[in-house]
Design a protein around this nucleic acid. Sequence first.
DNA 1: TAAATTATGTATCGATCAACACAGAATCGA
DNA 2: TCGATTCTGTGTTGATCGATACATAATTTA
Lengths: 203, 203
Amino acid sequence: MPERGRPRSFDRAAALRRAMEVFWAKGYEGASLSDLTAAMGINSPSLYAAFGSKEALFLEATDLYTRSEGTDIWSTLKEAPTARLAIEGFLTETARAYSRADRPQGCLIALGALHQDSTQGLICQDLRRRRAENQTALQARLDRAVAEGELPADFDCRAAATFFATVQHGMSIQARDGATHAALMATVAGAMAAWRTMAGANT
Amino acid sequence: MPERGRPRSFDRAAALRRAMEVFWAKGYEGASLSDLTAAMGINSPSLYAAFGSKEALFLEATDLYTRSEGTDIWSTLKEAPTARLAIEGFLTETARAYSRADRPQGCLIALGALHQDSTQGLICQDLRRRRAENQTALQARLDRAVAEGELPADFDCRAAATFFATVQHGMSIQARDGATHAALMATVAGAMAAWRTMAGANT
DNA sequence: TAAATTATGTATCGATCAACACAGAATCGA
DNA sequence: TCGATTCTGTGTTGATCGATACATAATTTA
């Protein structure tokens, strides 16, 4: 019954993916409707009919980003057998994802809208929430390791999660500056050097 | 002889400082001429007469930023007696500078223009150059420590500089997300934990 | 086939963008 | 005092921003 009237003549999911790539490369402000409609292959009335507004399109695009581009990173974090391998895998997957030749460099969540503004308060807030959720996921993995006795009880999971999340954010800027995969891995190595001090050499 | 014709009725240096704060808070794209002229207390023709264009104003503002806001961070790096204290001081000063209540949070150089665009290619390029210079300064300090025998000859100065520069970039995003000074210091502690592994426990 | 419904393309809306034309005002050297 | 020079405020420029009005096309239900 949702099939009444003239059917849509374009692939909504494909158009959303194109929009995601534009937002990813140019940020929310930097992506104009002209950029978006050109990449999506549609005219603006079709965009508004299908997605509602530029804001709503961005929110849907970030959702798609999290579901498609973020899965490797966050599934590695959760499924790795030890906390150390979880953090190392998390950062290694980040280095790989941020330096893919066929994708914009860096992270849409980290770089999409950093300057709060009256016209994009909602966007900023949404990305900020997503970044906070990521940091929470990091901390949850470390908390689990403490609960399972893998890490000492006095391990500061909150501080460590803050640190590793910050490193990941920095890697977005580094990648935007054209850093190679090897350069990003140098940062990963540095972060894992911190791990050895924080968790002890035996973990 | 530069005093001919009607004298300027506003303080050019003070106006530049106001412009710097607007760019710092909103980024290059996000700062409109209305924002700038309102903060500077002048009309747009005065802005163009005194600074040339929005682009030129931004470049002058980043220069002022480097000279005024960046001095503590980079003088600490150069003047600290040991490499370890240099890095620790560099990061500690960063944490302080990025979380000042009377300033925008994070760094103008890191956050001012991350999305390359035809209209702001020059701006992006300039900020990128400045970020590269900062990383070079970090590496130079570490190179010096190796040359002086403070660090082992096989210490990877380039990788370490990449790592600490990346941490600093991440702290800008962290600060933009409202991180307290204490939270930023948790990241500093993480980075210094890496130092202990990289340079050995005795440095 | 007719009525209802939804999508598309063209063309445009008012608002805002960065930048400037122009005339009057304020200082200079002569 | 006077011309030359430079700055200031008002008003406006063409371009672009995000978002729609409107007529037409394409489908479903009756």
